[in-house]
C-alpha cells in the first residue's frame, strides 16, 4: 500500500499530516500500539525536519503486512556532516525555529531510537533523504 504526501518549507501548521494518516492505517491493521507510536514519532520528526530545516519535500510511505517503509526526501540544503547531525543536541536550527519549540537537536537521534532501520544520505545543495523501516 503506497501513500504520498508533500511537505512545504515553513508550513508548521500542517506538520504531522502524514504521520497522523499513517497512524490511522496502522491501527486498522492491528499493529501493536507501541510500534504504531514508534512509527508515528519517527515520521513526525522527519516531517518536521523537512519543514523546519529544508526547503520542503516529499513523504513516501509503503505499508505491507509485516513492515512499514518510509522515505522523507527533501530539496536541500543538505547536511554537510551526517555523523555530527546524528549526535543528540547538535542543531543548526535558526533562532526563530527554536522559538517555536523545534530544533533541539533531537530529531535524527530520536528517529534512530524509534525505527529498526535508518539510512540518511545527503548531498549539500541537493537535499537529504531519510529512509526508515519498522517491522511489525
Amino acid at each position: 500500500m503506497h501513500q504520498e504526501y508533500t511537505v512545504i518549507e515553513g508550513d508548521f501548521v500542517n506538520a504531522g499530516k502524514a504521520s497522523s494518516s499513517v497512524k490511522k492505517t496502522l491501527k486498522q491493521l492491528n499493529v501493536d500500539p507501541a510500534k504504531v507510536k514508534r512509527v508515528v514519532v519517527a515520521l513526525y520528526e522527519a516531517e518536521v525536519n523537512a519543514i523546519a530545516h529544508a526547503y520542503g519535500g516529499k513523504v513516501l510511505v509503503d505499508i505491507d503486512s509485516d513492515k512499514i517503509h518510509m522515505v522523507v526526501a527533501d530539496k536541500g540544503p543538505g547536511i554537510p556532516d551526517i555523523a555530527l547531525a546524528m549526535q543528540e543536541g547538535y542543531s543548526t536550527a535558526r533562532p526563530e525555529v527554536r522559538d517555536m519549540g523545534f530544533g533541539a537537536g533531537m530529531g535524527l537521534p530520536n528517529m534512530q531510537k524509534n525505527v529498526d532501520k535508518l539510512n540518511v544520505t545527503s548531498e549539500v545543495g541537493v537535499g537529504t533523504t531519510v529512509e526508515m523501516e519498522v517491522n511489525f
Binding site: L29, N30, D66
Partner: peptide, 9 residues
Amino acid sequence: LDKDRAKAF
C-alpha cells in the same frame, strides 16, 4: 479490520 494482519491488510 481483522485480528490477522494479512487479512486486515
